[in-house]
Design a protein around this nucleic acid. Structure first.
Lengths: 206, 206
DNA sequence: TTCTGTACTGTTAATATATACAGTCATTCC
DNA sequence: GGAATGACTGTATATATTAACAGTACAGAA
């Protein structure tokens, strides 16, 4: 999506808020009133600009025919993608890994969650993270000591607690049956895929 | 909300589906087309009926001014209520216990979740349920052995694993530091508030 | 029986709404 | 120096949409 101007962001925010409060998108007149314009064409041209930049799509001839789009100019799908088995070498968020979408608010977590990763194995059992749990992950390459990270080492994706000391990183499991992984950043490439910011478990038995 | 007829349910379903797909409610004409009517007034009068029965609210003069209401005729609030400390003797879902709402799809869990209960204490630690986790609860008074239940005993609400044998119920913690609670149903009143059907954790540190 | 509600057809009018056209003024990009 | 873009005012119009009025038919309740 193309970069938006301050005004365009403001209008996009208003549209979001209007939908949240009313349950349907605003008309040109609604926008005109809310932003204090004197001409509905001010709203019209802003909407056109937002459509050009891929922030919204407009349905011609329909009243209130405004649809919000996501960052990739796609229909804003509700919820977060659930990532299953991650194949070696391929990016985590590749389309083929998306098993389904889970209708939760990404802004429920802080910082915002970008996807849900299906946890494999019991290495984080004592942190209350069990197999098949969905770990809410915030995409970032930065991690501080003690945080739970999604890391990629030798084309394998793993969830561990992060501990760094200079060139050395220790990936700590939370289960005495597992052993920590030591990484020398000078010889081994360690990629931080993201930060664990929440958890969702889903099952009657738990 | 008053009981709906089959036709009215059908139209309500269509409105829901239309909103999910388009992002805005349908017009009378949209409904007329979808249901195969020849007159837009068929849709109009159905909408009026739905409004009378409290299923929707209509904003006069606005195009697509249809708002979905929940079972109590209230604005359909998204997400689930988060229940905090439950005072002795008062019902779990009392308004004063609702700390906030959490924007997750209740239908994400099976069976459907009715509210989220903030877990106190570590008695279910080994089941991966930690303090301050939000337990997704399905309201029911029925429980089978092995299920995790929200139970009320002597005006205190607790989360435990359910085990029943005739008149005797055992509420099992999942932590060796805690002891099971034995209940004789003939002498002590045990109320099953609901079933744990999922879990949401929310925090950078986890 | 009359009344109320459901479930429609058919028509019409007022108005809500999208959207084109003609401008102004400023900024930035080349 | 022009050209494109942003951010508007102001006017106008076709049409999308709500919503009223006038019917028909049927079913269940008072």
């Amino acid at each position: 999506m193309h970069q938006l101007t301050a005004r365009q962001e403001e209008i996009l925010r208003f549209i979001r808020q209007f939908i949240a409060e009313s349950g349907f998108p605003p008309t040109r007149a609604d926008i005109t009133r809310a932003l204090g314009y004197r001409s509905p064409n001010a709203a019209e041209s802003h909407l056109r600009a937002l459509e050009r930049k891929g922030a919204i799509s407009l349905r011609a001839g329909s009243s209130r025919g405004i649809r919000l789009l996501d960052d990739h100019g796609e229909e804003e799908e509700p919820g977060l993608p659930v990532i299953g088995q991650v194949a070696a070498g391929s990016p985590v968020l590749a389309q083929e890994h998306v098993r389904e979408r889970c209708r939760v608010d990404p802004a429920m977590f802080h910082p915002r969650a970008d996807y849900l990763l299906a946890v494999q194995g019991m290495s984080m059992r004592d942190a209350g993270i069990l197999e098949d749990d969905l770990l809410a992950v915030h995409r970032t390459t930065e991690a501080r000591n003690g945080q739970i990270v999604v890391a990629r080492l030798h084309d394998e994706v793993t969830v561990k607690r992060f501990q760094r000391d200079g060139h050395y990183v220790r990936l700590l499991p939370e289960n005495p049956e597992y052993t920590p992984i030591d990484v020398d950043l000078r010889t081994e490439p360690l990629i931080i895929e993201g930060l664990g910011v929440g958890l969702i478990r889903n099952g009657e038995a738990l």
